[in-house]
């Protein structure tokens, strides 16, 4: 049974593409046949984050418009047997997508025996974002501990509940998951950043994971290797934990508390992670 997952947020720049790549990679690492679809037509970046930018020939729009078939457009990951990418077009705009075309692509992906179809949504609440969430069974709402991101996430939750296919067909609603990214435990401790408990209380959806602000994420995108492969890193481990929880396993939260610093460390202001 294939599940369609949308990775969404409303606000841009919070880590949707990074999270789509990392979670897709995590699911494939666990042996699930996974495809990550970039819905950000005109501003594609998933290819860059997943390191296959030089292998893009055909894209989602070509398949929607029947200019290419699915197999021509799908890019197989070089590292993982079960991982595929369907890139967005860089030359068209969001209007190139239509609901019937996207429905057909989703059906074809289901027929190709994928376990998970991850739809990487563009920012905003316009056509591209609506297309990405329309067919979703589950939604991962990516949120930064920051006012505009939390507000936009709440808005997206309203849209998931009213404008998705499941809402229109009056089926069981989309299962929502909260993924907090760029979390800094030390800033929370100093009262400068919204705490995890605040975000959970405000958005009131179950927590999938907390990804700490990490140099590993930047390094991963620099090199085009999803951060999940960096299993030494805090962010890589946090994403793997999130994938475990996504699959229904109980995993304790990590990286949400500061390490206790000694008086001497505080005196000389040696920051956590400064040397990482």
């Amino acid at each position: 049974m294939t599940e369609v997952i949308v990775v969404t947020s409303g606000k841009g720049g919070v880590g949707k593409t990074t999270s789509s790549a990392a979670i897709g990679t995590g699911l494939a690492l666990k042996g699930y046949r996974t495809v990550v679809v970039d819905f950000d037509v005109g501003l594609r970046n998933l290819d860059l984050i997943m390191g296959c930018e030089r292998r893009v020939v055909y894209d989602l729009v070509n398949v929607v418009k029947k200019e290419a078939n699915l197999n021509q457009a799908l890019i197989k990951d070089k590292r993982l047997e079960e991982l595929y990418i369907l890139p967005a077009s860089q030359t068209r705009d969001k209007d190139a997508l239509d609901i019937e075309g996207v429905a057909r692509v989703i059906e074809e992906l289901k027929a190709a025996n994928f376990d998970y179809i991850i739809c990487d949504s563009p920012a905003g609440i316009e056509k591209g974002a609506l297309m990405a969430l329309y067919f979703a069974d589950r939604a991962i709402v990516v949120t930064n501990p920051e006012v505009s991101s939390v507000r936009d996430s709440d808005r997206i939750l309203g849209i998931l509940a009213s404008k998705s296919k499941r809402a229109e067909d009056k089926l069981e609603p989309i299962r929502e998951h909260l993924l907090v990214t760029r979390y800094s435990a030390s800033r929370v401790e100093n009262g400068d950043m919204l705490a995890l408990s605040d975000i959970e209380e405000l958005l009131a959806i179950p927590l999938l994971g907390v990804i700490p602000e990490s140099l590993a994420v930047l390094r991963a995108s620099n090199s085009g290797i999803p951060v999940t492969f960096d299993q030494e890193s805090d962010a890589g481990q946090a994403y793997l934990d999130a994938v475990d929880r996504f699959l229904g396993n109980k995993v304790p939260l990590r990286f949400v508390n500061t390490k206790k610093r000694s008086f001497i460390q505080r005196l000389f202001n040696t920051k956590e992670g400064a040397s990482a």
Partner: peptide, 10 residues
């Protein structure tokens, strides 16, 4: 503690 202000405003 601006985080508290942020939460209340939100």
């Amino acid at each position: 503690n601006t985080a508290v202000t942020a939460k209340e405003r939100l």
